[in-house]
Design a protein around this nucleic acid. Sequence first.
DNA 1: GTGAAAGCGCTAACAT
DNA 2: ATGTTAGCGCTTTCAC
Lengths: 333, 333
Amino acid sequence: MAKATIDDVAALAGVSIKTVSRVVNSEPNVRAATREKVQKAIDKLGYHPSQSARSLASNRSFLVALLYDNPSASYVIDVQNGILAECRPAGYDLLIHPCDHADPELEQQVVSLVRQSRVDGVVLTPPLSDHENLVRRLMELHISVVVIAPAQDAIPCSSVMTNDEEAAFAMTSRLLEKGHRRIGYILGHPDHKAMANRYQGYQKALMYQGIPVEKRLVVQGMNSFESGYYAAEKLLLSANPPSAIFASNDDMAAGAIKLAHKLGKKIPSDVAIAGFDDIPAAEQLWPGLTTVRQPIVEMARQAAQLMLMQLRSSEPVVQHQRVKSTLIQRESV
Amino acid sequence: MAKATIDDVAALAGVSIKTVSRVVNSEPNVRAATREKVQKAIDKLGYHPSQSARSLASNRSFLVALLYDNPSASYVIDVQNGILAECRPAGYDLLIHPCDHADPELEQQVVSLVRQSRVDGVVLTPPLSDHENLVRRLMELHISVVVIAPAQDAIPCSSVMTNDEEAAFAMTSRLLEKGHRRIGYILGHPDHKAMANRYQGYQKALMYQGIPVEKRLVVQGMNSFESGYYAAEKLLLSANPPSAIFASNDDMAAGAIKLAHKLGKKIPSDVAIAGFDDIPAAEQLWPGLTTVRQPIVEMARQAAQLMLMQLRSSEPVVQHQRVKSTLIQRESV
DNA sequence: GTGAAAGCGCTAACAT
DNA sequence: ATGTTAGCGCTTTCAC
């Protein structure tokens, strides 16, 4: 059973290759008896259709690409798993393609990828989701494009959105309920536009309670653990330190927690700390990190579903899904 | 510039398609002038060769698959990145394929993948690296197979090995130097044979100092954070608790640290805790986790190099690389 | 409900 | 150094 081809199967089953093709692709217009006969031949020969051959003939690769530029391993893995959960049963394989959102040649590289590998669709994660030129370029190639968690729904392709602003509003409100009035905020990477939505939520919650947003309580972070550590340093070593810190992602919150420990501050009594994302480390930290959980796997699944939908209907289908994040209460707040 | 084919390029350049093919594949026997002429036509038309067509014609897919069954996101991402760093420049794309090492149908699924997608090579990570039947099956398909960190070098294919036993020996010795005499050990998942090597190192270090291995100080873990937490519970709540705990991976060590905090024990004065792997969380924890760093990205790169080497030489090439892990001293020991 | 013929866009083996 | 001729293993179109 070296490598059976469709001809071998057809010969063994005593039918034409077209009929075998019909059976393999679950097409109609085959008598049950014929179908069974063919199936038997397939099993006996251990026949597996060649992707390359069917790609060439049908001009579809059954390949989906995931483009990402995200340092968070857990995020990427969750996205991969979510996409695969939908794509695999549908017969699509996943090509992964990490890239640099700031690379001026990004667009061209991606075009090469799409043209060469003939991928049928592309999924983008933040911050690529907000790279309008890239999205436009991709759509010109007439392939299916879906973006995960774009900052705005202005993007002209299907997307799965989150309620980041709302969730950040809720978290800030929670801090407020606990009696905190001076709440430090660690901003996310400026290239990640979605991070701005979280900051919006923070501001709105404060304003809602008539509390002014103090510039000195808002410091820049870059999404990394280290940047969170240093941002927290600015906050906690200042003349009038905040009683709580809300970091716009968990890695930075982890940095803040580590600094608090170093300074001998008790969490949450001396300083409460909140994060955003619910990375695996969030529950491993001491104390457990109160944060916002994004249903990443679910988002990726929905993105893949949108993609498959588009792939099936020859017409371009643009649809926007929305998922909800939830507040996870642990011990750090 | 809808979709140029090799014929379009040949026509525009005024040469035969074979010459275009030569230029595209950087083959010899083309005059510099001709090469340039063809290149210009390629650029002008925005020509990208079709993978499907060349796969079908050459019987190579330029696709490599990564098979893994590993819950650690950082591990998988590191492996992916390492492989891509080598494969991409060589023109190979990466297909990812998470799977279940305990699934009785695993072998068949993998065979399907390889036959259908016509992948040229497969990389396996633990615990798949020790799945002898799977490896054998894969090799029967005459594709290039490389395993990362197998427990033994008995596997009949190329591999990149680690010195787990040695590193565990070193870590245990470090604990001994610090004066610890009762060192608890949290075993890894029994299906991960490589974990047994770490335990070997622990035992040998103790024996080397004439210290008997106490059964009560060795508890079973399952590689997860939770299992580490419960294993540490058994150890620390026992009648005569150890003064140090060596967990065979970082996730379990993190669990042990969390429990120690809960019990109000100071780390490392009340109980020292050591891990293995150096996951990103290791430095984010409080106190920082003393652990063993495996050069995962480097291992993956080497694995990819072995694979590419094999892919280039038609003969099967079996080669074994060995990388060294290093002890990372932080504050938990 | 089934089949025959014509490619898909390349590479391989052999000319020239 | 360059060109010609066959396929690779399927899907598509159209005939029966």
